[in-house]
Every structure is written in C-alpha cells, then in structure tokens.
C-alpha cells in the first residue's frame, strides 16, 4: 500500500488511503524524509482520515517522522485523525508529542500558509 505524495507549492501532502501496515508506515517515513530534501519543502501534511487504527507503532513512527523532518528544516502537520481513533489513542496512553495536528487537510493547509506568511 503506497501512499501518494503530492506537491503544492512548498508543501508536500501525503494522503493515507487505507489502513497501513508497519512496513507501509516505515516506507512512508522514508519516502517523505527523502522528498522533503528533494522538493525543498517547508511544510508536510499527512492526512490520516482513512487510517483505521493508530496504535503504539503507528504513533511512534509518525512522531519520529515529524522529528526527522524538523531536522531538515520543515514542519509536519498530522491531519484528519478520526474521533474514535483519537479516543483509542488516549486510552492506549499515546500522544503525538510536539507534533502539530489539524482537524482536516484544509485546516492543515491554512495553518501552514499562515505560518509561512508570518515568517517570510
């Protein structure tokens, strides 16, 4: 299950379209970190609307990915975590740490645009 990554200006958008297995998550992390450098992206949005479950492995992989991307000078926004999925994450004892989250893709884009306008 490959996750398509689109480029819109200096933002990369990865839209998860079905449940991801651990190896898919690791593949997505590799692909995004590579693309951030190649595309000189400043912002990354990962749309998790279609993700059925965020368990300990998925949460950790997302957090690590955001940290790696930050080290490359860009910011990650996790968008679209469904209410039921969020509830299960909290019960499990998981958090997204310092990663920015947004209600959906639109909100995520608005956040990054605001941020880039301020800093440029």
């Amino acid at each position: 299950m490959e996750v398509p990554i689109l480029k819109q200006g200096d933002i990369l958008i990865a839209t998860v379209q079905a449940a991801l297995a651990d190896s898919d998550l690791l593949q997505l992390r590799r692909a995004l970190v590579e693309r951030v450098v190649k595309a000189r992206a400043r912002g990354i949005i990962i749309d998790l609307t279609a993700m059925d479950v965020m368990d300990s492995f998925a949460s950790r992989t997302m957090r690590e990915m955001a940290q790696m991307i930050r080290l490359r000078g860009a910011e990650t926004v996790i968008a679209g975590i469904q209410p039921d999925v969020a509830f299960a994450m909290v019960q499990l004892g998981l958090s997204m740490g310092g990663v920015t989250t947004a209600l959906d893709l639109e909100e995520g884009l608005a956040y990054l645009h605001r941020k880039f306008t301020k800093t440029s």
Binding site: D52, V53, Q82, D84, F87, A88, M89, Q91
Partner: peptide
C-alpha cells in the same frame, strides 16, 4: 458502537 469497535481493533 464505532468507538468501541475502534478500541477493540486497536
């Protein structure tokens, strides 16, 4: 419920 199904799936 969708919420309980997600808890179980997790």
């Amino acid at each position: 419920s969708a919420s309980d199904s997600t808890l179980l799936a997790t």
